[in-house]
Nucleic acid binder design. Structure first.
Length: 492
DNA sequence: CTAATTT
């Protein structure tokens, strides 16, 4: 494949020309990196759907209350969304949920159980694409907190035949916590249907080990156990009509995730060539976008330019600390004393060990918080998350196990105790940054993020993140509590 | 040495 253009490597992301070009014609019709597309496949009708700021006409934009009840969480300014449909299909954005081919039971679930009033923008544009036969694949990117979960949960539920007692819809997620959360949303939305569901995190009561084939119609899981179930013939793929990847770019990253993900897709397509593949995430960098398109070559596509991805409702600040010890002082002397008025806080660290030791130190010195990482037992993780959801705990120290998708509406503050870097130990983890700060400011609430930097590398990383998203990040003095409080009062 | 997921 010729790397003719737009292969913006991380190194020269500061190039302003490149950035402008990308945002202007962000996705100029780059055909999938394949060969021999038939003239039919090449005939990609590029058509803009109703993605302009129509909904907010007549209302003031800064009226957060109105957005609360729409099917997603918060309404985003999504004029920057690029929609590309494949083939001849023409879709009309759904103004109301009734415009969609949904059963009365599902509509009731949306209105009564979920309390939604109307589709969010990502739902309005993608649900018609997903639910209109022939059921085409979809690669969909949308802002954090814009209602992606509702999209794929509705899609799975509406493709299930309640009279068939076998798995018909699968959803694969990167973490146990996301599995639990997605299953919970799914069961609420399915409340008035007879559709059954289970997950890879649901089997504790089974003594840990499943022995009988799954009869539930929707299955949500992490890749390891799903693979295991398929291998042991506990999960039959014959009737699966739809496969959803939550946090798809993460699930397709070149490591263990990708291997299992691709294998599952291939197995499924072998059993049922028409299986519908949905890839959802808030982030698709150029590489993952290409990879996703190579997996789903005929997919409809919805993308957001990365410069438009950073959420303006989340105030972001860099904090230059003299050393790592002073990061802890920021927590003890500034964050914790203001905890009560802050809502809830998530502190992200890089390693399991850091989660453990920081928690131990805070605990020792009387600062009440909890911590979570992959080294904890599943029951402990469940408990810690539940306490945080209940609001029993206000501050949670976490590795990136919770960086994606974790939805707790009371979180107003995210602390990057360690700035996000890739596993090479050097490169900025752009996507991780966006996901982490997106844990705050949910449900139309405001949020803030503090990035604690103590080394030259930390500063370099934050500088590159800032330039990647074209988002200036102001700096705060680490030992000036008044400044912090002023910022918090202003933004929260 | 390092997150996440498994057997």
């Amino acid at each position: 494949m010729q790397a003719s253009h737009e292969m913006v490597p991380a190194a020269n992301l500061a190039d302003a020309d490149t950035q402008k070009k990308m945002s202007d014609e962000n996705d100029e019709d780059q055909p999938p990196p394949g060969f021999g597309e038939s003239s039919d496949a090449v005939k990609e009708v590029t058509q803009q759907l109703e993605t302009t700021v129509k909904v907010s006409e007549g209302e003031t934009v800064d009226e957060p209350d109105l957005s609360l009840k729409s099917g997603g969480l918060r309404e985003q300014p999504e004029a920057e969304i690029t929609t590309k449909t494949e083939g001849d299909s023409i879709y009309t954005a759904a103004q109301k949920f009734e415009d969609l081919p949904l059963s009365p039971e599902l509509l009731k679930g949306l209105y009564v159980e979920m309390g939604f009033k109307q589709p969010s923008k990502i739902q309005a544009s993608t649900l018609p694409m997903i639910l209109t036969p022939p059921y085409k694949d979809l690669i969909a990117q949308a802002h954090n907190g814009s209602g992606k979960t509702t999209c794929f949960v509705l899609s799975m539920l509406s493709r299930v035949d309640p009279s068939v007692p076998f798995p018909q819809a699968l959803c694969i997620c990167p973490t146990r916590e996301l599995v639990v959360q997605n299953l919970s949303v799914l069961r609420r939305m399915a409340k008035f249907t007879t559709i059954t569901s289970t997950s890879t995190a649901t089997e504790l009561e089974d003594g840990g080990m499943r022995r009988t084939p799954i009869k539930e119609q929707v299955v949500v899981g992490t890749h390891g156990k799903l693979k295991n179930w398929v291998t042991k013939r506990l999960l039959a793929l014959e009737n699966v009509a739809i496969l959803v990847f939550d946090e798809a770019d993460e699930m397709l990253k070149a490591d263990a995730f990708a291997d299992d993900s691709v294998r599952l897709i291939n197995q499924l397509r072998k059993k049922n060539p028409k299986v519908q593949l949905l890839l959802f995430s808030a982030t698709f960098n150029d590489e993952m976008k290409r990879f996703a398109m190579s997996i789903a070559r005929q997919a409809n596509q919805v993308f957001v330019a990365k410069e438009k991805l950073s959420l303006d409702v989340i105030a972001q600040y860099n904090v230059r600390c003299p050393d790592r010890t002073s990061k802890t002082r920021v927590l003890k002397e500034i964050i914790f004393p203001n905890c009560d008025r802050l809502g809830q806080t998530i502190i992200f660290v890089r390693t399991r060990e850091a989660a453990r030791t920081l928690h131990a130190e805070m605990d020792r010195d009387g600062y009440k918080c909890t911590s979570i990482s992959g080294e904890k037992a599943p029951e402990d993780r469940d408990r810690v998350v539940q306490e945080f959801r209940d609001g029993t705990t206000k501050v949670l120290i976490s590795t990136d196990v919770l960086s994606r998708g974790f939805d707790v509406s009371q979180v107003t503050l995210v602390i990057n105790y360690d700035v996000p870097i890739e596993r090479d130990g050097r490169s900025p983890a752009y996507e991780t940054y966006l996901h982490r700060i997106g844990r705050s400011g949910r449900f139309g609430r405001k949020g803030a993020a503090f990035n604690l930097m103590s080394t030259a590398q930390d500063m370099e990383v934050m500088a590159r993140i800032s330039s990647y998203f074209n988002k200036p990040i102001a700096e705060l003095k680490w030992d000036d509590e008044d400044q912090f409080i002023e910022v918090l009062n202003k933004t929260l």
